[in-house]
Design a protein around this nucleic acid. Structure first.
Lengths: 148, 148
DNA sequence: GCATAATACTTGATCTATCAAGTATCTATC
DNA sequence: GATAGATACTTGATAGATCAAGTATTATGC
């Protein structure tokens, strides 16, 4: 058997990206599991409820929701289907533009969001508990730079 | 129509988690697309090649690969299937333990990895270009704390 | 005001991802 | 050295994600 050794070293930024991706994936995975176990919600669904709860009138156009989620219109349709079925959100016609329809947080969805937000707060704090206040603020700042 | 307004404010850590998850998702999404366009590789596949390239003998047990990827054994089986078919990796019997089999980086897989690693480096640097050296080092440190 | 383009959304097809259950092999206990 | 349990992996079923194509409505250019 022939020996061939690949020697490839990846640079600092690349290592950072790999480690960051892994760490954030695990962190969000734990929160996702926690929300699922306690509230029957996925993290993605929680984010939808969160966005709607903060939106004026607790409602958004589907396309804007897609943008805010970083997903496609198709993805939003698919993800809202079970949420409409379980009554977390409602679908409403847009009187200004018949092409688009609005998603609205239902009363029950708002209640479930409020409960889940408490868990989400706790879990987020636990996930970041090894960081002191200043480090959380640093992380927030770095995140903001990355997103810009 | 009745008015019900949900007022829920989520704490600093929660906001950080949401922003971080979003930013990292977008960042890795862009890298994933870039690798796909140039090398026909997904980010997940690249990570497999990277882990194998760094492993002694360029080979790992499937279960250890699963652990390193943060996936299940089943997920590894599924993800390696097309990679075996396209010849990026090889499946080998484990002489020490017939239950487990080894995944080995093929010669071609090593070459493709080496090429993709160059792109990955470039793309990672570009994604982190708004951070100066110290900030990259901070991010690395914070990531390490999160992962511990 | 009619044709073309753009926007918002849905749907079918396809591709991943995950869980539960199953098989094969190895280890440990009596 | 047989039996029970643990480990490594595969596979069937199912749910989630994504792309391309399609429909309906609105906006734009001539």
């Amino acid at each position: 058997m022939q020996i061939y050794k690949v020697v490839v070293t990846v640079n600092t930024q690349a290592q950072t990206v790999l480690a960051l991706s892994r760490a954030v994936g695990e962190l969000t995975g734990r929160i996702d599991n926690g929300l699922g176990a306690v509230h029957g919600l996925g993290l993605a669904e929680f984010v939808v409820l969160h966005l709607l709860a903060e939106a004026p009138g607790q409602s958004m156009r589907r396309i804007d929701l897609a943008g805010a989620l970083g997903r496609t219109a198709s993805g939003v349709t698919r993800m809202l289907m079970p949420m409409e079925k379980t009554g977390l959100v409602l679908k409403q016609r847009n009187p200004r533009d018949a092409r688009s329809s609005l998603v609205k947080l239902s009363r029950g969805g708002g209640r479930i969001y409020a409960e889940a937000a408490v868990s989400f707060d706790e879990m987020s704090s636990r996930q970041l508990q090894r960081l002191n206040k200043e480090q959380v603020s640093d992380l927030q700042k770095l995140t903001q730079i990355l997103a810009s």
